[in-house]
Amino acid sequence: MCGNNMSVPLLAEAVTVSGTERETAVVIFLHGLGDNGHGWADSMSSIRLPYVKYICPHAPRIPVTLNMRMMMPSWFDLMGLSPESPEDEAGIKKAADNIKAIIEHEVKNGIPANRIVLGGFSQGGALSLYTALTSQHKLAGVVALSCWLPLHKSFPQACSSSASQSVAVLQCHGEMDPMIPVQIGAMTSEKLKSFLNPQRLSFKTYPGMMHSSCPEEMAAVKEFIERQLPRV
């Protein structure tokens, strides 16, 4: 890790899967509540492209209201999982700023923003959507797995215009998800279609899949990353 990572707190600790040849693109992938970056770094390794660097940061440990204020890795506080639950607006914005700092760091190190895909699972997917849509940079795409759009009522106003016109989004959801029902994924997809280019959006559901991932989903993720980050 280079010394200048220290100004980007999440980067110093992040799990990084380096490319096996010259890195011309980056995927930043955010884990779900109570998890860490290691599992998703393994998943990314299984679908890796040789010219892509994968960065899987760990969320800070904070008390989570939904889980009786227990301390656990969480990108922001969660009060509930229904679309009408109150939301931790300050925490979501702060978390997005921390992810934007990683994006800035990669851009300064020579990877253009349009060669960066941001993704995540569950709470991490929610944060990746919010971050990409409010970023000043036009990213290559967003991978949003089993998740929702935080602060959904603030969109499209919260969008930075360049991102909102053209970002490609792959949304995937398990049809048997007991934690974040597939209906929430579908509502999120409809919301995104109302202000993004529908041609650039894809919503895939997987029969029998719960709040997890499956090989078919990972194949779709790999295909999306390959399409948005072709070899240069």
Rank of each mutant, 00 (worst) to 15 (best):
M71A: 14
V169R: 12
D77K: 04
W40D: 01
M79W: 15
V8L: 09
F76E: 02
E190L: 15
A163N: 04
W40P: 01
M187K: 07
P60D: 08
S46V: 12
R231P: 02
K138P: 00
T131D: 03
L33A: 04
F155T: 08
K153R: 15
V142C: 08
L133E: 02
A90R: 13
G80Q: 13
F195I: 02
K193I: 09
R48S: 11
L139D: 01
V232P: 04
Q228F: 13
F203G: 06
A140W: 09
E216T: 14
A140D: 09
R115K: 15
D35N: 13
Q171L: 14
T131I: 09
L149K: 14
L10T: 00
A163R: 05
V167F: 15
Y130A: 00
N114P: 01
C159L: 12
D77I: 09
T188W: 08
C214V: 15
V15P: 02
V17E: 02
N109R: 01
P50K: 12
N67Y: 10
E217N: 03
V117K: 14
A186K: 11
M68F: 07
P156L: 08
P207H: 12
R69C: 06
L33S: 04
V117S: 14
I28T: 01
I47K: 03
E89L: 05
K204E: 05
M218P: 01
I47D: 04
H152I: 10
T134L: 08
R200S: 06
P112S: 10
K193N: 13
Y54Q: 03
E21P: 04
D177P: 02
S43W: 05
N5P: 04
M71R: 12
M176Y: 14
S7T: 05
E13Y: 08
L66T: 05
R227P: 05
A113V: 02
S74T: 03
M6I: 04
R61S: 14
P230I: 10
V167M: 11
A126D: 05
V169F: 12
S154L: 14
P60L: 04
M210N: 15
G19R: 03
L149C: 13
P63N: 14
